[in-house]
Simulated scan of single mutants.
Amino acid sequence: MTATAAPTGTGTTAVRLPGAWGLGLQRGALEIKQFFRQREQVVFTFAFPVVFLFLFASIFSDDVKGAGITASQLYVPAMTAAGIMSTSFQSLGISIAIERDEKVLRRLRGTPMPPAAYFLGKIWLVLCTGVLETAVLLLVGITFYGVDLPADPARWFDLAWIFVLGLTACALLGIAVSSVPGSGRSATSVVVLPFLVLQFISGVYIAIGTIPGWMLDIGALFPLKWMCQGLRGVFLPDSARILEQAGSWEFGKVALVLGAWCVGGLVLCLLTFRWKNRREG
């Protein structure tokens, strides 16, 4: 990191530090480099949803009556949505809680680095891992389960905004939930449990038509259900719309809910984020 010296009217030299955006890019490069150096974490992050996709798609591979698809194809977009949430919500919720517990955040807060640069670095990390996770899952779905890439440019646009809004909403929720664990050791339990429950009531592992209505209503309050529904609309034929609760892809509602969670997640971050543990004041 270099600083630019500029002369002042008094003959002294003022140091112009890089802005938050430039520091955020550098911080993001560092976060990505550190992530890929941890081989076990890399393997777990990318292999976990692929293994689950393989298991569920292999066990439930029959044709879905009246939908014109197989159960295997139904799992691909749902697992892709779960993969996006895993690389954002789960990853940030756990990693930030651990960094807070190890006093990494406290040390960073004591440097001249703008707080925004830290969060930009995390966003670059989840953007990189989210794109790679999505690409891997779609490659598996296309290669082994007969999922087709969209032929309509409008569907590619739908994929882009669902990915961006979903990743942003889940990343902000991950940052907010990182303040809940009392310590870094408890972070995994605190973050993984609600994420696992959401996967079951949002149509990731179980078809929407077999989930009790009250569970669907709870799942509909959170982004994952709408990410699953939106991605099904992108990658599945229109005949599969009959499987949805409303009999439609509801792209407008998907955008509205994910957009609302982006705003709500930002508010939660501003209200709850802490640089120190509760016991440190």
Rank of each mutant, 00 (worst) to 15 (best):
Ala57Cys: 10
Ser91His: 14
Leu74Trp: 15
Thr80Phe: 11
Thr87Leu: 04
Ile84Pro: 03
Thr80Glu: 13
Ser91Gln: 14
Gly83Asn: 12
Pro49Thr: 00
Pro77His: 12
Ser72Arg: 08
Ser88Glu: 13
Phe52Arg: 00
Ser88Tyr: 13
Gly68Asp: 07
Val50Glu: 00
Ala81Thr: 03
Thr70Leu: 05
Phe56Gly: 05
Ile84Asn: 07
Ile94Leu: 07
Val76Leu: 06
Pro49Val: 00
Ser86Trp: 00
Thr87Gln: 11
Gln73Ile: 11
Met79Arg: 04
Leu74Met: 15
Phe52Cys: 04
Lys65Ala: 15
Val64Gly: 07
Ala67Cys: 08
Ala97Leu: 12
Pro49His: 01
Leu55Thr: 07
Asp63His: 11
Ala81Lys: 03
Phe60Tyr: 15
Phe60Ile: 14
Ala78Asp: 10
Asp63Trp: 09
Gly83Val: 13
Ala81Leu: 01
Phe60Val: 14
Thr87Lys: 06
Leu92His: 08
Pro77Ser: 09
Ile94Phe: 07
Leu55Tyr: 04
Ile94Gly: 05
Ser91Lys: 14
Gly66Ile: 13
Val76Thr: 02
Ser91Trp: 08
Phe48Thr: 00
Ser95Pro: 06
Asp62Pro: 01
Leu74Asn: 15
Phe89Gln: 14
Val51Met: 05
Gly83Lys: 12
Ala57Phe: 10
Phe54Trp: 07
Ile59Gly: 04
Tyr75Gly: 02
Leu55Arg: 05
Thr45Leu: 03
Val50Leu: 01
Ser91Tyr: 12
Ser95Met: 13
Phe52Ala: 06
Ala97Cys: 10
Thr45Gln: 10
Leu92Gly: 04
Phe56Thr: 06
Leu53Tyr: 03
Ser91Cys: 05
Thr70Phe: 05
Val51Glu: 00
Ala81Phe: 01
Ala82Cys: 04
Gln90Thr: 12
Tyr75Phe: 11
Leu92Thr: 12
Lys65Pro: 13
Ile96Thr: 13
